[in-house]
Structure formats: C-alpha cells, structure tokens
Design a binder for these strands. Structure first.
Lengths: 353, 353
DNA sequence: ATGAAAGCGCTAACAT
DNA sequence: ATGTTAGCGCTTTCAT
C-alpha cells in the first residue's frame, strides 16, 4: 500500500478553522508526523526522496510550527527572559541589543519585559515570564522585592540560570552579576572634578526615585568629593524631562549662585545645562565645568564635547550572552570567569571639564 | 474516603526535575487538576473551602502556570505580536508603549520583534512570531516583501487580525492601517517653509536606505517645494549618527553656500545642525531656518526651540489597541471607524523658522 | 460544585 | 530510514 496522492493517515484541517499542523504535512507527504518532525529539526535524517516530498508539502500547506506544542513535548524552551527597567531608554537598549545578538546565533529568542523602575512590577513581570518556561532569566540590578527574590531563588533551584546585569557588587557570591560598580562611577566623577581643580560642586540626580543604582552614584560622588574637602550639594529633580531638568537646575543656580562644576546622573541633563549655559553666556568650562554620565551620542555633539563617564553597555550584553551560553550548554561554552564580569567605567575627557 | 493529608491522585514532581504543575497543587489540595484549573480561571466557581485549600497549596508549591500547555489546550493565546523596525528608537517606543498599555488591561501581552529596517528580516520575524500563535499581528508600514505579504494574508485567512501601523495610505482598502500620511508631512514641511518666505531649501534625509516612509516625506517635500517655485536640494546621509549627520551637512554647506532654510528627516539631525550653527555663529532663523520632524524632547530645548512637525505617536498605539480589541472581542468593543484611523501631523512653530 | 475522559500539536524513547 | 507509543500540562466537553 503506497500512501501518496492524498492523506491516508489522518486528515486534520477543517475542524479547528485552522493552521496546517505536522499531521497535515505528513498526510500530504505520505509519511507520519514523526518523519516530518525529524525533517524539520535535522533534514539530514530523512531520505532525499522523502525530504523532497515533505518540502513540497510544507510549501503547499503553508505550515507554521507551533512553539507551544514543541516546548511542551520537548520539555525545553528557546526563550531567554530579560527584565529591564525601561525598554525605550537608550541605556538598556544597547545592552539588550548585544544580548540579543549573542543569543540569536544559538537559536535562543528574547522575551523582553520592562518594569518602569517599579519593584512591584518587577515581581509581576518575573512571574509572568516564568509562565513561558524560559531556559534562562536576566534581571536588572541586585535589588529586588522579597517576592521577586524568592521567585529568582526558586527559578535557580529549578535549574534556570539567573543573571543580574548592569550592577556589580563584589560582595555578591552566590549570584552571577555582570556590570559595573555604580559607587566606583561616583568616585570616578568626583575624582575627576577634584583633579581638575574644581572645589565647589553640584551633583544633579535626575533619576526616578526608584533608580537605586543612580542614587548610589550620587551618594558615592558626594562622599568622595566631601572627603577631598570640596563643597558638594546634591540636587534631586526626578520626574522631569532630563534635558529640561538640567536646564532648570542651572537656571536656579544662576539666581542663587553658580558652583564651579556640575556632575549629572546622565548626559541628558548635562546637555540641558550645557544649552542653558550657552543661552546665558556662561563659559564652559571656564566659569562652569560640566560632567555627564553614559557617553550618549549627544555628548560628542555639544561644542567642544561634553566630558563624561563611559561604560561599555554593549559589553554587558555580550558578556551576559556568553555567560548564559556557558550555563545552558556547558559542553560547548564556558561561563565568563568571575574576574571578567566587572565592566570598567572610564572618564572621557572632552571640552566641558 | 477523604483525600487530605498527602497526594492521592498522582504525585508528579521528582521525575522531570521540575516545577510544580496543577497536578502537584491538586494533590496537595485533595482535588483534581480540573478543580485547580477552574479555580485559577474563575475562583468563584469552586466552594469557599476548596478555594482555601487550593490557595494554600498554590502557595506552598510555588506553582507557576505553564502558558504553553494552556495555549495548546485552550486553542487560544493571549499574545499580540508586534513587529517594528527598531525597538530602541524613540520613534516606535512611544507607540509600542501605548499599545502595550491599551492591551494589558485586557490580559493581552505583547510579543515584540524588530527588523532593523530589513525587509528580509521582517519576513523572518513574522514567521517567527506566528509560531507562537498570536491572536493578532501588528506590523509597521505598508511595504512588505512578497513572502511577508503572503504570510500576512494567510494569517488573516486563519482569522488573525492584522494591523499596519505608522503609515496610512488612503488607497488601501482591504487592510487596516493606523497612522499618518508621510506624503502629507513632506508637503506640510515644504508649505511651512514657503509660507515663512524661504525659497532656497535643503532637505536632509538621514534615514537608512530601507526606510521608505522617510524617503516618502523627502520626496513629497521636494515635489511640493518645487511646485511653489522654490529651489530645493535633497541631501542623503544615511548610516551616520543622526546629530553628527546634521552637523556635518551644515559644515559642508558652509563651504559650498548656505541655503535659506533646511528641513530634516527628524529632529536629531536638525539638532545637530542647530548646534553647528551655534558654533559657527550662524543666526537661526535670521540667516538659516531649521525645521525638524517628530517633536522629540530635544526640539524644545534648543535655544528658542526647534520648529518641527509633531505626530501623536502614542495615539497610533492606543488606536491600534482599540482596533485590535474591536476585532478580537467584537461583543465588547468596536473597531476604530475608518475615518479615525488617520492621525494628523501638525506644524509646531517655534523659534527656528 | 466537582470529576472523568479525551485531546491540543508536538517530541522522546523506544522499536523495526 | 521510518514508524509506534506514550505523554508533556493544560482545558474542553460532558457527566455526576
């Protein structure tokens, strides 16, 4: 008996208004679903003749695989879940892009979720992505709500690799972190301004209240500058357009008295201040030095350039990808050695300091 | 016989190194998986007593639902797939955010994919997201590869609503589009500059070659300005940092001769040009008028402000959400009337024109 | 208010 | 090189 012309095994299609399944394809190709499944995963395992018929059937039926069924039956998933504070923000998009690139080559897809810097939402998002049985989990930072911490712990217990990116705490031992020390950034910024001879300093923290990493930079800045005997004021201006915040702060300071130098939680408020200085005829850095953070494209465009602290955001993403591959396929890759998980921030001296 | 203390039905957990399933919970609560499933979806359908025991069991086991299994069995998904040219770019992130907000309230989650403006990648991404059986599909723009078009057509045939965002072509009839006319934007920009009395114009197109929508704006600009008797040059500078491109172009023009006004494919190159004008002492708009597109935050920060064309990017997202809900739950919502699917661009007159 | 049976589409672990 | 059987975790449908 030669099953050839029309489906003899089962004839799906027609019942559930639906898409072609492997059964549809199998019927058309005159084989069983097993052969179709095999062909789809490793075409070399079926005979050339069968392969041709299956290919034709796939074409005709417009077959689209069903990942849910595949995951359920295969007990493994191609998903890496990533949770960041904000998808839109340039800060994380570069890291996510690099991570995505690093994983894509190995047929792993990203499931991306954002928390808007809300710890409660982080917990909800972790719970949500876990429902997709990711094979690995990436979260941002080392501070999590108790509930979130419990979820992460359980995920690890269930054999799901967890990596914290964007933050590196030398004291952490049990958990894999890939990022930099925000304390170090603050100290670096203070050190730079002190070195250049500035003593009367203002730090503008424009980050949202929940962004503990940004506050850490600000606190470290104040502490380090204070130790060096400089006068430091820390100003907070959350929930305002970053560039507008920089501009507004400088305007206020013009009234109450300018410091000798200003540092910012990111390049954007720094750029706002730079523009305001321009308008007001304040000479940078002659009368006022400005130091940003992040080395975003705008920093290179402002006059003689905005001095800033650069962190290799892409490196964080690619290191994270390497690390995950190391944990997911220990036969093929090695995890990133602990010593290389710390990304070093650098001062970029340009024309504003 | 009262099943209470320990699981009597089945005792999973232990075999597949794994997570608790509904069976685990059911065993602990002394009920069947059916009751657990029911409770999870509509807690009101089980007795108060049972509910308590299930709740406790859920707690103890740390149960996490398995979406794959749910989707497979339930034959429906909570996924809306969205494909945009770039996730990171501010342009789309606002639209995606609004779309996400609009769907989240109705328990629909976004599956986000990006194409990097590559048609071939769009096709691959459509294929990839279809494997997750989304209940709706959102793509960017109206130009797709033949393969992509076929996939979209088949999706529609399979009952999956498809919406094209970010572009609106009055000639399209069979397909739902929500966005604006890029031709209209180009004409609006040309009209504005002409109205203000500028006759010698340059349009800088900094978009990637594949961004047909941006080219459409440029072409419409040139055509409209030409019709009005103005002198128009269109300059292309793709693959360069947007702000740097604006700066570079103006530098070149300083050597070869300045136009009276410049228009840009977005605010960012316009901002670059504005900064260059500042450095070079070119008076804006006295000697050179600058007109951007997009109304990004930076436009409001440059001196007396950068004139620009604003498009309500969030509205596109929320309209899209409304439309999808209308198609997915016709009993509860209505699709967006065709007349409201066109979002109107507006000229924002500020200090640079 | 709860349960039993069947099956969603696919793949692992055996055959042959 | 291909097929058979069983079952992934859940929901549907139909009892009770």
């Amino acid at each position: 008996m030669s099953p050839e012309a029309d489906g003899l095994h089962k004839q799906p299609r027609g019942r559930g208004h639906g898409r072609a399944t492997q059964a549809t394809v199998a019927a058309q190709a005159g084989v069983t679903t097993m052969t179709v499944s095999r062909f789809l995963r490793s075409p070399g395992l079926v005979s050339a003749d069968t392969a041709d018929r299956i290919r034709a059937a796939l074409q005709r039926t417009g077959y689209t695989p069903n990942k849910s069924a595949g995951m359920l039956a295969g007990r493994r998933s191609s998903i890496v879940a990533v949770i960041v504070p904000s998808i839109a923000h340039a800060t994380f998009s570069e890291t996510v892009q690099a991570l995505s690139d690093g994983l894509q080559q190995h047929a792993l897809e990203l499931l991306l979720a954002s928390t808007n810097y809300q710890p409660a939402r982080e917990e909800r998002q972790i719970r949500a992505v876990l429902a997709w049985s990711p094979s690995a989990l990436v979260v941002t930072g080392r501070m999590h709500s108790p509930g979130a911490t419990a979820l992460l712990q359980q995920a690890r217990a269930d054999g799901v690799p967890v990596v914290e990116i964007w933050d590196f705490d030398p004291r952490a031992k049990d958990i894999v972190q890939i990022g930099f020390s925000h304390r170090q950034v603050g100290e670096l910024m203070a050190g730079h301004l002190i070195e250049r001879g500035y003593r009367d300093l203002v730090y503008l923290d424009n980050s949202v209240p929940e962004d503990l990493r940004a506050h850490e930079r600000g606190k470290a800045f104040a502490r380090a500058a204070g130790k060096s005997g400089a006068l430091v004021r820390v100003v907070a201006m959350p929930r305002m357009d970053p560039m507008a915040a920089g501009r507004a702060v400088l305007q206020e300071l013009q009234a109450t008295g300018l410091p000798r130098a200003m540092a910012f939680s990111s390049d954007f408020p720094a750029a706002g201040a730079w523009l305001q200085a321009q308008s007001a005829g304040i000479v940078v850095p002659g009368s006022l030095a400005l130091l940003g953070f992040g080395d975003y494209p705008i920093a290179a465009q402002l006059g003689a350039g905005l001095s800033t602290v650069s962190v290799d955001r892409s490196a964080i993403g690619s290191l994270c990808a390497r690390q995950l591959l190391g944990q997911l396929r220990p036969d093929l890759f090695e995890p990133v050695p602990a010593g290389e998980r710390l990304v070093q921030p650098r001062i970029l001296l340009r024309g504003s300091t």
